[in-house]
Nucleic acid binder design. Structure first.
Lengths: 203, 203, 203, 203
DNA sequence: GATGAATGAGCGTTCATTCAT
DNA sequence: AATGAATGAACGCTCATTCAT
C-alpha cells in the first residue's frame, strides 16, 4: 500500500534520527534501550534493523559520509582551478562539522566500510592528482602525502571544533589558505629566511 | 629503609605498563580483569590503584602528556628561531606518536585534566606569541588561530598515523614545512595565481 | 495458550527448589551463582526473580510457612477436642521438620513477613483460646503464655532434630503429651510431692 | 614483667568484649574490621588471636558456656530434690538469656566444641538420671528423651525471648512448672479427662 | 514482526583472609 | 608482633545481545 516509502523503512530512518539526536546530547553512554525508546520502537525491533551497536554507529557514519559524498559530487570540483576546488572542499567539510561532531564524540573512527571511504576520497584523490599534473604543488612532497596532510589538517580542525571558535566560513578559509600556501609550489624562488632553509635541507 | 621505591609503587607502574600494552593490542575492549591479570595483580588491587576504568585511562593519558611536557621543556625552544623551534616540536610530537597511538585508539579525548593541558600548551603558546612578535606569521590570522591550526595538523597527522607511512623524521619534516610555509608572512608580495587571490578575498 | 503455567513461572519454582536443595546440603555458604547454576538459569535471571539473597531466603521461608498454613487449615482443628487438635498440630509441625531443617540451618529467623506469621499463628491462637474457654488449661498461666511455651517446645524440638532421634510420630507424641500434661488443669488436687509444691508457690 | 595477666592476654579479652558488644548491637553483619577497630587493635592482630571469623564466634560461645558451666557447678544441684534442681537450672539459664541473646541472633548453633557441650550437659544428664532413679519421671519416656524435651523447651523459650515478655523469674518458673508437671510420674491414676486418654493411647 | 524474558560479560564494591615488611 | 597492602570470592547491577512466543 504505502508506495513511496524510501527503500529503508521510515523505521530505520526514525531509529537513525533518534540515535543521532541522543548521541549528540549524551555521548557514547547512550544505551541501545534508550535509542530504541527514543525512536519509539522496542529494543528487539532495533536489533532487527541494526544487529548490534557497532552496526548502528557504522550506519550513522555512512549516512554522514553519503551526504558528504553527495555534496562533493555536486560541487563541480573538476571544473574549477585546484585552489578553488580545495576551498570548496574545505567549506563543505567544515559546514558539515556540526553533524560530524556528534559521531566524532562517540567514536573517533566509526569504521566506515572501505567502499564508502573510497567513494569519499575519490574526488579528493583526483583533485590532488590534478594539482600534481598542473604543477600546483611543491615538488618535495607527493600528492598523496599532501592529501594525507590536508585530511589531517581538516580532521584535526574538525576535532578541535575550530569552526565554533572562528565561525564556519573563516575556519574553512583559514584551513584552505594555510594549506594552499603551505603546499603550493614556490614560483618565485627568491632569498628565503635562513631558518627555514636549514629545515628544507632536512628533506 | 626502602630507598629507591619510586613514589608510585612499582605496582602502579606495572599496571600502567600492562594497561598500555593491552590497550595498544586490543583496543577499548580490554576488561579491567584482563588489565589486572596482565599486570600480574588481582582485580581488587587494580581497583585500589585506579578506582575505575576512566581513572586508569586518564592516568595513562596524563603519563603520556607528562612525557611530552618534559621533552618540550628540554627542547630549548626559547633559544632558537621560531622555525627551528617548531621543527623540534613536530619531531618530538611525531616521535611520541607510537605511544600516543594506543591511547588514541582507545579514547579520542581521554579527558586530560585542565592543568596538564595547560602545561602542555604553555610552551607552544609562548612560541607562537614569539612568532607573532617577531613578525614571522602572516598577518591575516592571529597567533592563537595559527596555534589551533598547527595543533589540528599535528593531531590529525598523528591520528592518521602519517609517521607509519612516511617514517618518523619525514613525517615531522613534512608537517613542519607545510605549516611553516603556510603560516609564514609573505615577504615578497609579487603576482600570485589567480585562484588563490579570489580565495584570499574571502578573508 | 499457556494454560497450566502456575502463576509464578516454573522458573521461579525451579530456582526455589534448587535453592532449597543446595541450602539443605551446604548450608549458608552457597553462593547466588551456585543457586543459579543448580537451577539451570543464568545469574542475571536469578536476580530478576529475587533481587537479592535475602529475598530468596525469605521467599523460601514463606513457601514453607504457606505449606504449614495449608496443612493447619486442612486439619479440622476446630472440630475436635483441644487435646486432639494439639496432637494434630504437633504431628504436622514435626512432619514438616525435614523441610524446615534446611532453612533453619541457614538462618534461624529468616524474617517471615508479619502477615505470614499472623496466618500461621491464627489457628493456634484460636485453639489456645478455646482451651482457655473450655477450662482445659491450668489457671496460673494465660493462654498466650502457654502458646509461647508450646511454640518454644515445638521449635526447640525441631531445632534439636528430636524427630531424627525418636522418629517423627514418637517425637510428635512426646511433645504433645509432655505439653498437655504440663499445661492441663489439675482436676484432682490431692496431696502432691513437696518439691513441686514449694515451686508452685514461686508463682 | 606483667605477672598476673590471665593466661589469655587482655588483648584477647578486649577483642572478645568488643565483639560481644558489637554483635549484640548490629547482629551478624559486623565485619572483622569493625570488631578489630572496636577492640582497638589492627585487623591483622585480630587474626593472630582468632584465625577466622568462626573461631571468634566459637570462642565467644565457649565463653558464655563456661559461665553457664560455672553457675551450674555452683548451684548445688546434687543436694536438692530433682524438682528444685530443675528450677535452679531454669533460673540460671533464663537469667543468662540476655548474654546468650546476642550470640543466638548471630548464629543459631555457633558450633560449641564437643568437650564444652559435654561439660555443659553433664550435670543435666546426671540430674535427669537421678530423676529416673528416684522415679520422678513418667515411665513412658526415657530420661534422655525428657532431657531433650527440656532442652528444647529451654532453648525455644530463650529463642522466643520469653523472659522479655514475662520477666526473668516468671519465665523460669513457667518453664520449670510446665516441664515438671508434664514430665512427672502420675501418682494417682484416677479417672482422667477423655480427650487425653485417647491421646495417651497413641503412645 | 514485535514483545518480554534470558543470558553472559563486565563493572565497581565489600569482606574475610593472607603476605610482605 | 603489628601494619598496610594484596587477594579471591561473592554481591548486586547494567547492558548488549539472543530466544521464545
Amino acid at each position: 500500500m504505502r508506495r513511496n516509502v524510501p527503500l529503508r523503512d521510515r523505521v530505520a530512518v526514525a531509529i537513525l534520527d533518534a540515535a543521532a539526536a541522543e548521541l549528540a546530547q549524551r555521548g557514547q553512554s547512550v544505551s541501545m534501550a534508550e535509542v530504541a525508546t527514543a525512536a519509539g520502537v522496542g529494543r528487539t525491533t532495533l536489533y532487527r534493523y541494526f544487529p548490534n551497536r557497532e552496526s548502528l554507529l557504522e550506519t550513522l557514519a555512512e549516512e554522514a559520509c553519503a551526504e558528504l559524498i553527495g555534496k562533493l559530487a555536486d560541487a563541480g570540483l573538476d571544473g574549477v582551478p585546484v585552489a578553488e576546488a580545495l576551498a570548496r572542499v574545505s567549506r563543505i567539510a567544515v559546514g558539515q562539522a556540526a553533524k560530524y561532531q556528534a559521531l566524532m564524540r562517540v567514536c573517533c573512527k566509526p569504521d566506515v566500510p572501505d567502499e564508502t571511504a573510497r567513494q569519499l576520497m575519490a574526488p579528493l584523490v583526483a583533485l590532488f592528482a590534478r594539482g600534481s599534473a598542473e604543477g600546483v604543488w611543491r615538488g618535495d612532497l607527493g600528492s598523496d602525502a599532501l592529501l594525507d596532510l590536508y585530511m589531517a589538517l581538516l580532521e584535526g580542525a574538525l576535532g578541535h571544533a575550530l569552526h565554533s571558535k572562528l565561525g564556519v566560513e573563516p575556519a574553512a578559509a583559514a584551513i584552505t589558505s594555510l594549506f594552499l600556501q603551505g603546499a603550493r609550489a614556490q614560483h618565485r624562488p627568491g632569498p628565503r629566511p635562513e631558518a627555514t632553509s636549514s629545515l628544507a635541507e632536512g628533506f
